[in-house]
Design a binder for these strands. Structure first.
Length: 267
DNA sequence: ACTTTGAGTCTTGCTTGGGA
DNA sequence: TCCCAAGCAAGACTCAAAGT
């Protein structure tokens, strides 16, 4: 269908269509680059990258060329869909998913400061955000099987919770202090934990299951909690995350776990 | 209009350590 | 031994700007 000179952006566009035809959407930057290079090996990855950036409507910079930013839409780091196939509704839905929760950070903190709190034991927890797993084009929660991406050269078995499926979510990045946190489902406290850096714990732990963690020796707890969150999210229940900033987080967490015995905590 | 370069940021994969 | 969490290095990705 494309006519004229096969510039990089034209090749990227036709590759995107091809990947969608193969049922591969959203597709990765690597998928696109491999496809373009198959069509024309003369183009180097370093040349294709900024073109992809340039024709993606929600990425800044890059080399837009003649066509403008009307070809691709980024739906996550390194993940794209064809922009023509992105209904406005979906873009709005995406605005409520994890990747953009930072926009709501300040609001979250504001609520905390203004006094929206939850009492667990004798402690007042402040709300951070609701947890909303990433969704696909149709608004369905994305179910991921990251274990397939692990190069299991040692033939390790999956750990007890490694089969998944898993979801992906993020919380705001500015909760970088020690605290006790609570996962609350529809008003009921399901899990209490502690950490030195909440944002890191969630965004690089519970919210994003790495392939290695699905196997023996990986972080089983991350797999287990993520899978529970996925199940709850699919049921339509609201999942919210609450925190108590404290230097005494280990003692308070232990105390609350024994007094509250949340369903998702193990002994 | 298109290509190339490179710095900075983020993610991934893995290891290690503390506590029960 | 199991559960939970922290830290590090390497590679992937984003972004901006200059060159052709």
């Amino acid at each position: 269908m494309t006519t004229g000179k096969q510039t990089i952006w034209r090749l990227v566009q036709s590759c995107a269509k091809k990947l969608i035809d193969m049922g591969n959407t959203p597709f990765t930057r690597s998928d696109l680059i491999k496809c373009v290079r198959r069509k024309n090996p003369r183009y180097e990855e370093n040349s294709i990258n900024p073109i992809i950036q340039g024709i993606t409507d929600n990425l800044r910079g890059g080399a837009p060329g003649a066509v403008g930013k009307y070809i691709l839409h980024s739906v996550g780091r390194g993940l794209f869909v064809l922009r023509n196939g992105v209904p406005r509704k979906r873009a709005q839905a995406r605005a409520t998913t994890a990747s953009n929760t930072e926009q709501k950070d300040e609001l979250g903190l504001l609520r905390a400061i203004e006094g929206e709190y939850l009492t667990i034991g004798k402690y007042h927890f402040h709300k951070i955000c609701d947890i909303r797993p990433e969704q696909d084009n149709s608004g369905r929660i994305l179910e991921l099987l990251p274990q397939d991406r692990y190069n299991n050269k040692d033939n390790l078995p999956l750990n007890k919770y490694g089969a998944g499926p898993f979801c992906k979510f993020k919380i705001p990045n500015n909760y970088n202090f020690p605290d006790v946190y609570a996962l609350v489902i529809s008003g009921s406290t399901k899990y209490i934990g502690e950490c030195e850096n909440l944002s890191s714990r969630y965004n690089m732990g519970y919210g994003n299951i790495s392939p290695r963690n699905c196997y023996a020796g990986g972080q089983e707890t991350n797999c287990r909690i993520n899978n529970l969150i996925l199940k709850v999210a699919k049921s339509g229940a609201t999942i919210s995350l609450w925190f108590l900033e404290t230097e005494d987080y280990k003692a308070i967490e232990a105390n609350l776990r024994s007094s509250e015995t949340p369903e998702w905590n193990r002994v």
